[in-house]
Design a protein around this nucleic acid. Structure first.
Length: 364
DNA sequence: AAACCGTGGAT
DNA sequence: TATCCAAGGTT
């Protein structure tokens, strides 16, 4: 024990973070979310619905809670069970996912639902078995297993990486530090409440141990946090420098039929925006596109994807003739049901704002 | 292993 | 306006 100037002995700094302290905080401050049950119910032995846990976890990958909420409500209202989702069409799932991003998640979600429906609608109950399913990796398998099935596994997401690298001042650069973080978490997971512990560490990261100006004064682990004592919380986790985003450009053609229908195409099933709906467009490259003929140029649209920024020149043509060989006319009543990614919503807003403004799901 | 894959909100 | 970044997975 380290002697103190007042003659007492310092205990807390050697104790290390205790799961019980975090769980006590969680019992008071857990966020209320539609896929989650209250910690009091959890302690009564009530389990969360594996379908809702799985669906929410897939949606929450690299996505904020606020963005997920209306999509989660829509999916669960439309497809109340995993077997209902398995029976949906690819088009319906894509359209329902439109706007959430990372569209391969939607294809993996649907494929996963079909596998589970084939197994009687029952989810595998261990992290190891869950990880074999499409769209389910290290994090998601552990999250579902611990939250829905009480398996005491380490659940490590971005929040947990931040919390734990600060607790122990782990200065290995991401993503290498993940192994150390996982080891630290594994040593802390309580056998009696693994799911609540996982959700508590994530809630702590989301609401207290935030990337910038963390609220250490409110943190149940502040006394045992090395970074808090050192005052360098924001230095963790250590990240590699980011690469600059290249800029690409292109042209998009909105063809409007005399009845107001818009010509649509489906993007290829792999790569960027897989399977999503688009209007005819040039290549997106470093070079300036050729202008479309017999069309009015309406201005440009800017959009930033994960690894490049795009500037699209928007053209409008009024014509009853299909401009490309593969595609379909979407009437004004149907346009909002198409699987438009956000870049295409921007394009449509530049041409038919009164119709395009109603494309996204309503917030709840 | 590093690149690919969206989006909207906060600062 | 620019940058960061949020409950990652796949190849």
């Amino acid at each position: 024990m380290k002697p103190r100037s007042d003659g007492l002995t310092e205990h807390v700094s050697r104790k290390g973070p205790q799961a019980s302290d975090l769980l006590a905080w969680y019992d008071q401050h857990a966020r209320t979310l539609p896929w989650r049950i209250a910690p009091a119910d959890s302690q009564r032995g009530i389990r969360q619905d594996p379908y809702k846990v799985w669906l929410s976890e897939i949606m929450l990958q690299q996505t904020t809670v606020a963005a997920v909420l209306p999509y989660f409500q829509n999916f669960t209202a439309r497809w109340p069970t995993v077997s209902d989702l398995a029976l949906a069409s690819d088009d319906d799932v894509r359209a329902a996912w439109a706007g959430l991003g990372y569209y391969r998640r939607a294809a993996n979600l649907h494929a996963c639902a079909k596998v589970i429906a084939d197994q009687g609608g029952r989810f595998p109950q261990t992290a190891a078995a869950l990880k074999d399913l499409p769209g389910i990796g290290d994090y998601t398998s552990a999250a579902i297993a611990s939250i829905a099935f009480c398996e005491p596994v380490a659940v490590v997401d971005g929040n947990v990486e931040r919390v734990v690298t600060r607790l122990f001042r782990l200065d290995t650069v991401l993503p290498k530090v993940k192994r150390e973080v996982t080891d630290k978490v594994r040593a802390m997971v309580p056998d009696d409440r693994p799911g609540d512990f996982a959700q508590a560490t994530m809630d702590l990261g989301a609401t207290i141990c935030t990337p910038k100006t963390p609220a250490c004064a409110l943190c149940p682990w502040n006394e045992s946090c090395a970074a808090h004592h050192a005052g360098d919380m924001e230095a963790y986790p250590v990240k590699a420098p980011k690469k600059a985003k290249p800029r690409r450009q292109g042209a998009a053609l909105v063809v409007v039929r005399s009845d107001g229908a818009v010509w649509c195409e489906q993007r290829p099933p792999t790569g960027l925006l897989p399977g999503m709906t688009q209007v005819p467009t040039s290549e997106w490259s470093a070079d300036a596109p050729k202008p479309y003929k017999d069309a009015e140029q309406l201005g440009s649209v800017e959009h930033v994807f994960t690894h490049f920024a795009l500037s699209l020149q928007v053209y409008r043509r009024d014509s009853d003739k299909p401009p490309t060989s593969q595609g379909w006319w979407s009437t004004p009543e149907r346009v909002r049901e198409e699987a438009w990614p956000t870049v295409m919503v921007k394009v449509l807003k530049a041409v038919i704002p009164e119709i395009a403004s109603s494309i996204r799901p309503k917030k709840r």
